[in-house]
Design a protein around this nucleic acid. Sequence first.
DNA 1: CCCTGATTCGC
DNA 2: GCGAATCAGG
Length: 231
Amino acid sequence: MAWTDERIDKLKALWEKGNTASQIAEELGGVSRNAVIGKAHRLGLKSRPSPVKSGKKKAAKPKTKTAAKPAAAKAKAPKPAKAATAKPAAPKTVAAAQQPPAPSQATPSQPLPSEAVPSTPKIVSVGPGGFLRQGPGDQQAPIPPAPPRRLVPAKPSPEIADKTSLLDLSDKICRWPIGHPGEPDFHFCGAPVNPGFPYCVEHCGRAYQAQLPRGTRRPPPPLPFGGPRVR
DNA sequence: CCCTGATTCGC
DNA sequence: GCGAATCAGG
């Protein structure tokens, strides 16, 4: 079974939705669990709670079907794994509560010019509402906003009459979740996004306002506010 | 044993 | 690129 665009799309959606590889495989049909996992990794999907992680070393697995060649020894070097070289783990949150990564020790043959360490490698700007905004290279909402547990916005928008499902998400529609994942009527706002943000104008206000530390909250920004420049 | 995802490596 | 085989933790 070939990995068509649609199948890949579904794989992504289901994977990120939290389905297990087995479930995804069954859903897609024609593929094994391993195929799903393999594809997921090739797609660069992030790993989800996996039982086996490693900090342990992996045992080598000599899987030579036709001919066993221990002598060859392959190029299968035991992965040093976390060598802790200059490899930023690419933190996803830009929240203020971010912790500095463990200081890597000096790399051999790479004398550091000095301790000149860029304090803010990422481009971050502040939007009118006081929330942080990310540069184009690093997309993703700062923090998934905690959606209202028991309160649902009266009526988000008429467009979602058909329920905006996970599969319907795009960068042009509001991703604000309505309801709780798992509920039969769980869906997303689906309204047109505030340009440059993952949510519509209304939900941008809610999402980012909620990010502000307690005590420093300021009155809700006058809506609509328009990110970079709305014209 | 079952499940899970991660990884390897022949194809 | 694909995925069976294998590994390894729960």
